[in-house]
């Protein structure tokens, strides 16, 4: 990512008269802030507000925080009980931990599979790169749901995979894959792999190959060239790709619900239950708020790293 160098930024700010700065720059910076405020902050505040209410049999099914009791008296009642419950109840902690664990393992597997793919594409002859990238992107043209359903057909007891393995004689009993954690991992890794491959490809294709020649020239063998040069320099891509997998997978609902077994406990599923089955919108909202906070930590770390990397490769 090309970043505006901060020094030039500051110099420009000093040089520009205050008024025109407010007009021109303020307007341009204001647009993304406005966007973030309208479509991120505001909805989040709604969620936060609901998380502090109590469920009620009403429309909408939660209490108002602010109530006019009459005589100009206003009562504000904030209910932090949901957050206490989330902390106290091992179910929610377990779900959060389970989600993070599944997301972490999936991210790792995606990176292990996606890195060689991205590397191969970036090093392929230039007329091959576009078709290869298209092959990575092509599955997106089919609905995500249909692709996950297809995995049911592949993994189930008398599905494609088992029938194939039975036919080859490798197994004599169908393997139990569907409705196991393995199926969840297969589904997640399959669905999210392109999100790793694309940013990795973008960093690897930008890598200056003379750096590898320089390393070779200084006596560095190919494998060490990769470890000492390619890998550290592609770290921004690794982190970007990793976050693109990790963050959505923590909240993933569809894949574990369709491919997972009953013991696949993920936070997305719990939120579904709280929202739909229990009509407990406040608790579902506090789950969402906690999840957001948990996810913001790695995201901020990513930004920090990217910024550092951006300075290194001006």
């Amino acid at each position: 990512m090309k970043r505006f160098p901060f020094t030039a930024w500051d110099a420009g700010r000093r040089a520009m008269p205050l008024l025109s700065r407010l007009k021109g720059r303020g307007l341009i910076i204001g647009v993304p802030w406005f966007w973030l405020g309208l479509f991120f902050l505001l909805p989040f505040l709604f969620v936060l507000k609901i998380s502090l209410a109590e469920p009620a049999l009403a429309q909408p099914p939660y209490t108002d925080l602010i109530e006019v009791i009459g005589d100009g008296l206003v009562s504000i009642s904030l209910n932090f009980g949901n957050y206490v419950l989330l902390w106290d109840d091992p179910l929610y902690r377990g779900a959060l931990f389970g989600s993070i664990q599944i997301a972490a393992v999936s991210t790792l597997v995606c990176l292990l599979l996606g890195y060689p793919m991205a590397y191969a594409i970036a090093r392929a002859p230039s007329h091959w790169r576009l078709p290869l990238l298209m092959l990575v992107i092509l599955p997106f043209w089919t609905s995500f749901l249909i692709r996950v359903y297809a995995w049911i057909g592949i993994l189930k007891g008398n599905g494609l995979l088992n029938n194939f393995l039975l036919w080859t004689g490798l197994i004599d009993q169908p393997l139990e894959i569907l409705h196991t954690p393995l199926a969840v991992y297969i589904g997640i890794v399959y669905s999210y792999l392109p999100f790793v491959v694309l940013p990795l490809y973008a960093t690897l294709i930008r890598l200056d190959l003379t750096l590898l020649e320089a390393a070779a020239d200084l006596g560095c063998r190919p494998w060490k060239q990769f470890l000492l040069i390619t890998l550290p320099l592609s770290l921004p891509g690794v982190i970007a790709g990793g976050m693109l997998v990790f963050i959505p997978v923590v909240g993933e609902f569809v894949i574990p619900d369709l491919l997972g077994g009953p013991d696949t406990l993920m936070i997305g599923k719990l939120m579904w239950t709280e929202f739909f089955s229990n009509k407990d919108w406040p608790l579902a909202s506090s789950l969402a708020a906690v999840l957001l906070v948990v996810l913001i930590v790695p995201f901020v770390a990513l930004r920090h790293f990217e910024q550092k990397a951006g300075e290194e490769q001006p």
């Binding site: 469920p55 049999l57 109840d89 091992p90 179910l91 377990g94 009953p262 013991d263 696949t264 406990l265 719990l270 239950t273 089955s277 229990n278 009509k279 407990d280």
Partner: peptide, 19 residues
């Protein structure tokens, strides 16, 4: 009741997931 439903659903999640 609403409270009973919530308790039931949460108990259900625990049972299913073996928590």
């Amino acid at each position: 009741s609403e409270r009973e439903i919530r308790d039931m659903n949460r108990a259900w999640t625990r049972v299913k997931t073996g928590q």
